[in-house]
């Protein structure tokens, strides 16, 4: 039963579905630990996004929606884990390039979350979102800036 809930949540985040937050609430009600949700649902979901980018299936709208779904879930997990951060630094996002290259960076970056626990995982995903969105939005900014030079 818990596996089903985790799978449904991962799918909802990866495909940017608006019901991701509702599914997260259901998982918490079913006593699935926040840490388990992070490791078994959210990180695999974002890996799917990375794979989709590598395969040219995911671009700006799909990534934006998946991140929105991810953020909606992080919002409800955050209070439960807040304060439980370790002193070790969170890995910084350094990936750059075109969408399909960024997809590879995303998958590799998420692997670095394997050793983290608790609130560090939230901070790690925050950094992932920040770095990813900054890079994904670059072409849009560049396009807008091309008329401003």
């Amino acid at each position: 039963m818990s596996n089903e809930k985790i799978t449904a949540l991962a799918k909802a985040v990866a495909t940017g579905k608006a019901d991701a937050q509702k599914l997260a609430h259901e998982a918490i009600s079913a006593r699935i630990a926040p840490g388990e949700i992070l490791i078994k649902a959210l990180i695999p979901a974002m890996k799917k996004v990375g794979e989709g980018m590598q395969e040219e299936e995911y671009a700006f709208p799909e990534i934006q929606s998946a991140v929105k779904a991810l953020q909606s879930v992080l919002d409800i997990l955050r209070p439960a884990l807040e304060g439980a951060s370790s002193s070790t630094g969170i890995q910084k996002w350094e990936g750059a390039g075109e969408l399909y290259e960024l997809g590879g960076h995303l998958v590799t970056f998420l692997d670095k979350g394997a050793e983290l626990q608790g609130y560090d995982l939230i901070l790690f995903l925050d950094e992932c979102i920040r770095g990813l969105l900054e890079q994904v939005a670059l072409p849009c900014h560049k396009q807008a800036a091309s008329t401003h030079k």
Binding site: E56, Y58, A59, F60, P61, E62, P139
Partner: peptide
């Protein structure tokens, strides 16, 4: 069509 593959997937 300036969104092209810069912002949209080929499928979209």
């Amino acid at each position: 069509e300036t969104m092209g593959t810069l912002m949209m997937s080929p499928k979209m």
